[in-house]
Design a binder for these strands. Structure first.
Length: 246
DNA sequence: GCGACAG
DNA sequence: ATCTTGTCGC
């Protein structure tokens, strides 16, 4: 497990954060198809918080796309780098997520994160931001439609309908299980929406949410537990470097 | 101005 | 996201 600090120059205000989004948005690549579904490796990333203790834990779990077996995983712990503000989620998650990705023993391949990419007030959600900073193909899978609208897709797994910002299709409501609430898929970086949806279906053989996010979710929760129980036992140990790491 | 709003 | 036990249903 690696420890992260908030990067120097990290936005401190909402205004600064929005300015960063407006600048980085130009670097998003949307004309690449992305990796073929069912091949190579796919990495799920997720984050858990303890706002009381100001601690955040991130996990990255690499799955073999064909077998969905875990082939690598890593975690990172840090301080919360931004409050939760709708539209600025990335500033809360990215430093720790980047550290977890860096700690992986093999290349991540396609990254699947919680939340949105293009489906964002300024078309630059977490998945896009993560993609631009890493250069990796990234897609976003969210559990809620955020501020967007959609018509209910068909009741069977695989049915989908456009996720709309007015007339613009910014993502898709995708049914991953019969008669269960859809997930909301959007492109982050270097992938197409059709391809992203195909990946999500390949990642959901049994549950509503992709195996990538399920694995990453449970791992980051465990990492947070371990980090905060350590803090409770010896508060000073967390603020200095551990004996083994230095 | 008011309410809604990924995680 | 997080607070949180049992419980309805396949």
């Amino acid at each position: 497990m690696t420890t992260v600090r908030i990067p120097a120059g990290w936005p401190a205000t909402e205004e600064q954060a929005r300015a960063v989004q407006d600048e980085l948005r130009a670097r998003v690549v949307l004309d690449e198809p992305g990796p073929a579904p069912g091949t190579g490796y796919i990495t799920g990333v997720d984050v858990a918080y303890d706002d009381e203790r100001d601690v955040v834990a991130a996990a990255a779990v690499v799955l073999d796309a064909a077998s969905l077996e875990v082939v690598a995983e890593a975690t990172a712990v840090g301080r919360v780098s931004f409050p939760y503000v709708p539209g600025l989620l990335a500033f809360r998650e990215i430093p720790t997520v980047l550290a977890a990705l860096d700690a992986l023993s093999r290349p991540p391949g396609l990254v699947v994160c919680d939340g949105y990419g293009l489906a964002h007030p300024r078309r630059f959600g977490l998945a896009s931001h993560l993609g631009v900073l890493t250069g990796l193909p990234v897609i976003g899978v969210a559990k809620n439609p955020f501020t967007f609208t959609y018509d209910e897709p068909g009741t069977r797994r695989g049915s989908s309908s456009p996720l709309l910002a007015g007339e613009e299709e910014v993502g898709r409501a995708l049914r991953t299980r019969d008669d269960v609430k859809p997930v909301f898929v959007s492109v982050g970086h270097r992938a197409t929406l059709d391809n992203a949806c195909a990946h999500v279906l390949a990642l959901t053989p049994a549950y509503r949410l992709p195996e990538t996010t399920r694995r990453a979710d449970s791992l980051c929760r465990r990492a947070l537990q371990e980090a905060t129980s350590q803090e409770a036992a010896s508060p000073e140990a967390t603020t200095r470097h551990s004996p083994t790491s230095r």
